[in-house]
């Protein structure tokens, strides 16, 4: 994948994106009794054994690590759903299926910390990996259809996917933009940070380039 080769190019590190995802709510079934937690990030609980409660993922993982709860995998992580999504991804090459914005991070955290709470974990895991692969491949092929524009909309692109394709998408869009707007060329040529060394060449009005052929 274009942007994956150099991790330093990515705007956010995978760890940062995971951190952002850890505030997503999941359902846990505690095995302890605990008073409500009045956190800066919100109020959670009270907790009683066997009574399901909604908590942020980081809290669920923390409790799980200490053996204080089981985590209920979210609805969308059922084999039925995932199979359906995978089929959809494969059938419709033009669009993405609706998946949670943080589906990669959430599933990854649950695989790492709550494997015994996920029924058929191997199946679930391989389905999610397949979905991920199909989607990434789809982004790549769709990028070939790029044309000069000031905006590209991609529905249902997830957080991790945005971060992975960003370097490539931004560079290509910049290149198109540059060819459409010769005046800014001098600026863009000096990579991302402009450190002007020479004065911009004055482009005569009649030298306006034809925009690239649009689709």
């Amino acid at each position: 994948m274009a942007g994956q080769s150099d991790p330093h190019i990515s705007l956010f590190s995978p760890q940062e994106i995971e951190f952002m995802a850890e505030d997503e709510l999941v359902e846990i079934v505690p095995n302890i009794r605990m008073d409500p937690l009045n956190f800066i990030s919100g109020d959670f609980g009270p907790f009683s054994p066997q009574l399901p409660a909604k908590v942020p993922l980081w809290l669920a993982v923390a409790l799980k690590k200490r053996g204080k709860c089981m985590i209920r995998p979210p609805q969308w992580m059922s084999i039925e759903n995932l199979t359906h999504v995978l089929e959809g991804e494969r059938e419709d090459q033009g669009a993405f299926q609706a998946v949670p914005f943080h589906y990669i991070e959430i599933s990854r955290l649950l695989f790492d910390h709550a494997r015994d709470d996920i029924p058929d974990i191997y199946m679930v895991r391989s389905l999610i990996e397949d979905i991920r692969d199909v989607r990434l491949h789809k982004v790549e092929t769709n990028l070939e259809k790029f044309s000069a524009t000031s905006a590209v909309k991609i529905s249902h692109l997830s957080a991790m996917e945005v971060n992975v394709v960003r370097p490539f998408v931004v560079r290509s869009l910049q290149a198109f933009y540059k060819h459409d707007n010769p005046v800014v060329m001098a600026d863009l040529d000096s990579a991302s940070d402009r450190q002007p060394q020479v004065r911009q060449p004055q482009v005569p009005r009649n030298a306006q380039r034809q925009p690239l052929k649009r689709r």
């Binding site: 609706a98 524009t149 000031s150 905006a151 590209v152 909309k153 529905s155 998408v169 869009l173």
Partner: peptide, 20 residues
């Protein structure tokens, strides 16, 4: 509203757009 296009860019919550 985008500068170069007559059509506005419309986004719902699940859309991600790369924009100038």
């Amino acid at each position: 509203t985008l500068v170069d296009s007559e059509r506005p860019l419309e986004m719902e919550r699940h859309d991600v757009s790369f924009v100038l």
